[in-house]
């Protein structure tokens, strides 16, 4: 049962990674001004790659006059985030640490997952602090009704950012567990014994006992002959004494 828990969390993380990937295409923040009659006067949505976008096409309208400033989130971080999401998906899907023969080979995978968690946390914390608040874009949402001007101002975090918030506590357990397991556990090295045997075999002097027995038996059979065959033993002795192995 216990081991199944990890697999359940793995599935949750996979689903979360899909959500994270999709979150990039959703708006992260929206700023709207409605008239009292619910007519949209200003509408801007923030996407991390395309920045502020609007469904209103009239460029001379109030909408364009009230366009929020660019948030200037470095594109490199966004691209890195996208890459990390894809890489993490690969790691979670194909690099299951419970099935592996050598945990040490998964060292880089834990860093990938750890980095994704950090980036996710970075967006949760720094997106509002560094990019929204200085632009007077309120967090998490705000609605002001101005009865004199007969307008309704609303700003709110969008589904893209909400997805980040939902995903973080769900991916956190599996990623920390993955990281800690690879840090704390290690397979016993199997190759050391094999390597030792190879070294021993290389160092030891070859000894063909069958051959030596056969020589002696031959010698025994032809013991009556006056001429002795070439004595192999002398060569073995010489090589042994000279250390030629």
């Amino acid at each position: 049962m216990n081991t199944k828990i990890i697999q359940y969390f793995r599935i949750i993380v996979l689903a979360c990674l899909v959500i994270l990937f999709l979150s990039i295409f959703f708006n992260w923040y929206s700023f709207q001004i409605h008239s009292i009659n619910d007519e949209i006067l200003v509408s801007w949505s923030y996407h991390i790659f395309t920045e502020w976008t609007t469904p209103i096409s009239d460029e001379s309208s109030l909408n364009y006059a009230l366009r929020p400033d660019s948030l200037k989130i470095p594109l490199v971080i966004n691209i890195l985030y996208l890459i990390m999401i894809v890489l993490s998906g690969y790691v979670v899907l194909f690099k299951d640490f419970e099935q592996v023969d050598s945990l040490s080979s998964y060292n880089y995978n834990r860093y990938i997952l750890g980095f994704l968690l950090l980036l996710n946390f970075f967006y949760i914390i720094f997106f509002p602090i560094m990019y929204l608040l200085p632009q007077e874009l309120y967090f998490p949402f705000l609605q002001i009704i101005d009865y004199d001007a007969k307008i309704k101002i609303s700003c709110a975090i969008g589904p893209g950012y909400l997805m980040q918030l939902i995903v973080f506590p769900l991916i956190c357990p599996y990623i920390i567990f993955y990281y800690r397991t690879i840090t704390n556990f290690e397979h016993e090295r199997k190759s050391v014994k094999k390597n030792l045997d190879i070294v021993i075999e290389r160092v030891q002097e070859p000894l063909d006992i069958d051959k030596l027995i056969a020589q002696e038996e031959l010698k025994q059979q032809f013991s009556d002959t006056t001429e002795r065959p070439v004595d192999m033993i002398n060569s073995i002795l010489t090589s042994f004494l000279e250390g030629e192995g």
């Binding site: 828990i5 956190c172 357990p173």
Partner: peptide, 15 residues
């Protein structure tokens, strides 16, 4: 150590 995963879940939520 598997039970620790619930600990990490709560830690994530707290963070």
């Amino acid at each position: 150590s598997i039970e620790d995963i619930f600990k990490y879940l709560l830690l994530g939520l707290i963070a």
